[in-house]
Design a protein around this nucleic acid. Structure first.
Length: 601
RNA sequence: GGCCCCGUGGUGUAGUGGCCUAACACGCCUCCCUGUCAAGGAGGAGACCGGCAGUUCGAAUCUGCUCGGGGUCGCCA
């Protein structure tokens, strides 16, 4: 080793003073006082102040004059207690310093494009281009370690529970469902292609047929779709699958694991236990979304009946057409002015609403029951009696000083709009406690969704989820009413993963394919291997896929998963450091039997 | 594919039609300094304003196209 001690290691003057040590690392900062030179030396464990004193070693002092930021050096010297008054309480090693007797420059460095420091502000573009420098920052090192710890706990916990980690192949077969595949040409089979897995779903189900019983993998998944703050073309998921289980068995394992991760990685935060459980129906009714942030309050109320009793034509006609009128009460916002309400109307319109109806309950009202007509202000109030307004206030839970937001129209749109407004108001009012992690299981999803474009039923999750036993009879006759043992794990508005009890009966699996509208040929081509496997004693099984990047970002309080991925890609799915993707040589293309067609224009 | 925001020395910003021969901070370079720690002091170098085309007497500033980055809708079994 070039060093015998880590920079962050010697900490106490009593214990360490007088020891001769050798450390090595990067020059974090240099303070040259002429005759006395200070270097903050940085390695993965932290900072250590090194002093070069010409009276101790004139050679070392002389060489130290040439040191610059990010040079890589090795220093030998004696640990000494700092002189009185020169201690640095901000540094873990602030009580001591290293008095250098010997300095070796192991490598020089160009002046870095940005400083390796926490307080600086650099564009993400620049950070990604020089990711190796960016990752030297303490914060990035901490995030990578946190991620490591999360996966370490996954390994520990699942190993204890009898799980076996199995690596599944990265080169598999394209089964064009859902997302676009990333595709890899085969040299040996001209004109044929592998696909990178969108998830190891089928492989892990086959492992259940193989008798593994409890499988997990920290698996890379590839999807060639547009990126977002929480979506990368390759993401990592904790993939797990269990045999002979019911839904509760799967959620118990995951809940125990996630509670433990929170306890060990963020011991200071609140994690309400047990995790909340609510059905998809209930989530949509109370929050308008299947991934609610439950810290926000402001639950949705159905006001169709009350609003339809008013003289307001909009409400009457929407109610008559089978539409829905719903609303939320935003605490303390009765004083919102025109500009603020206009902003909310914009948000509502962006998400499909025709408009947004406000009722402001004046602070001066003693209570909802005693408030007067004048104490409730709103554009449609002249069409509503005080009784109706009171009714609306009661159902939304509004109090004096609150602002009620109402949206009318198709239920799906109304829910989406109110859910967005709820999130927006939560952000504005800073309602959510950043130290609370409110996990919830959302269960009993419908198995199918109607796709108006393709005029087909499509799987709400994926084709392998089992319908609830009591709904098997109506699979073909009323697909929309079929629910499944299908569940999501959500936390603070983030979808962290979903799972289900799978189909293990090849005949039932064929019926599902039938409802979705696959032909015999398509089924044979895409899923023949799975159906064949199921004919040889497939056990009942179920499992989950849980996003690791999202989990770590959530735990770390980061809004983008790029912060917790060592080498993420930009929104155009490219890597600014590698400059990937890139063209390949004609020789490579020829070998792969590939001709590139260039778009003119 | 749609919509929105951004692009000025190495980095982050200011400048939004003539005051710009482009300002500020950090960084960088030189010198001074034995107790600093986001050291301090003095001096200095460094950008023609993402690219192209236009409007104008005059463009960093206006317009169009384009490239790059970010957010979002679509998309994401």
């Amino acid at each position: 080793m070039h060093k015998d001690t880590d920079c962050g290691q010697p900490r106490r003057a009593d214990a360490d003073a007088g020891k001769e040590i050798t450390v090595a690392g990067w020059v974090h900062r240099r303070r040259d006082h002429g005759n006395l030179i200070f270097i903050d030396l940085r390695d993965r464990t932290g900072l250590l102040q090194v002093v070069f004193n010409p009276e101790v070693s004139s050679d070392a002092h002389h060489l130290a004059e040439s040191l610059r930021s990010e040079w890589v050096v090795k220093v030998t010297g004696k640990v000494a207690r700092r002189i009185q008054g020169a201690e640095n309480p901000n540094l873990a090693t602030g009580e001591i310093e290293l008095v250098a007797s010997e300095l070796t420059v192991l490598n020089q460095s160009l002046t870095p494009p940005f400083e390796v420091d926490e307080h600086i502000n650099v564009s993400e573009d620049m950070r990604l281009q020089y990711r190796y420098i960016d990752l030297r920052r303490q914060k990035m090192q901490d995030l990578l370690k946190m991620r490591h710890n999360v996966t370490r706990i996954m390994w520990d916990e699942l190993t204890d529970k009898g799980f076996t980690q199995v690596e599944t192949p990265i080169l598999i077969k394209s089964t064009p469902e859902g997302a676009r595949d990333y595709v890899v040409p085969s040299r040996v089979h001209p004109g044929e292609f592998y696909a990178l897995p969108q998830s190891p779903q089928q492989l892990k189900q086959i492992l259940m047929v193989s008798g593994i019983e409890r499988y997990f993998q920290i698996a890379r998944c590839f999807r060639d779709e547009d990126l977002r703050a929480d979506r990368q073309p390759e993401h990592t998921q904790l993939d797990l699958e269990m045999s002979f289980v019911h839904q509760k068995d799967v959620t118990d394992v995951v809940e125990h694991l996630y509670a433990r991760i929170m306890r060990e990685v963020r011991p200071e935060v609140k994690v309400p236990a047990p995790f909340t459980r609510l059905s998809y129906e209930e989530a949509m009714t109370r929050f308008g979304t299947d991934k609610p942030d439950m810290r926000l309050g402001m639950e949705l109320a159905t006001l169709t009946e009350a609003a339809a009793r008013s003289e307001a034509r909009v409400f009457q006609s929407i109610a008559a057409d089978g539409g829905s009128i719903r609303g939320i009460a935003v605490p303390g916002c009765a004083g919102y002015g025109r500009r603020q309400t206009d902003e909310l109307i914009d948000i509502a319109k962006r998400h499909g609403a025709q408009g947004l109806v406000f009722i402001a309950i004046d602070e001066s009202a003693e209570s909802i029951e005693t408030m007067t007509e004048e104490q409730a202000r709103g554009p449609l109030n002249k069409f509503m009696s005080v009784d109706i307004i009171r009714d609306i206030a009661r159902q939304t839970g509004a109090k004096p000083g609150d602002l009620i937001l109402m949206v009318a129209g198709a239920e799906k749109m109304v829910n989406r709009v109110l859910s967005e407004l709820r999130l927006e108001m939560g952000r504005r009012l800073e309602i959510a406690d950043p130290n609370e992690f409110s996990f919830a299981w959302v269960t009993d999803f419908p198995l199918f969704e109607w796709d108006g474009d393709s005029k087909h039923w499509t799987p709400a999750h994926h084709v392998f989820s089992a319908p609830k036993t009591e709904h098997i009879d109506i699979l073909e006759s009323d697909p929309g009413a079929v629910h499944a043992d299908l569940f999501d794990l959500v936390c603070n508005g983030w979808e962290l993963g979903s799972g289900s009890i799978r189909i293990h009966n090849p005949e039932l699996q064929r019926r599902i394919f039938g409802v979705i509208g696959y032909t015999e040929e398509q089924v044979a081509d895409r899923f023949g291997h799975l159906l064949r496997a199921f004919q040889y004693g497939a056990p009942p099984h179920g499992g989950m896929g849980l996003g690791l990047d999202r989990l770590v970002a959530l735990i770390a309080g980061e809004s983008s998963i790029r912060e917790v991925i060592a080498f993420p890609k930009t929104q155009s799915a490219s890597d600014p450091m590698f400059e990937a993707p890139s063209k390949i040589s004609d020789e490579q293309l020829a070998e792969l039997h590939i001709a590139v067609i260039t778009d003119d224009e």
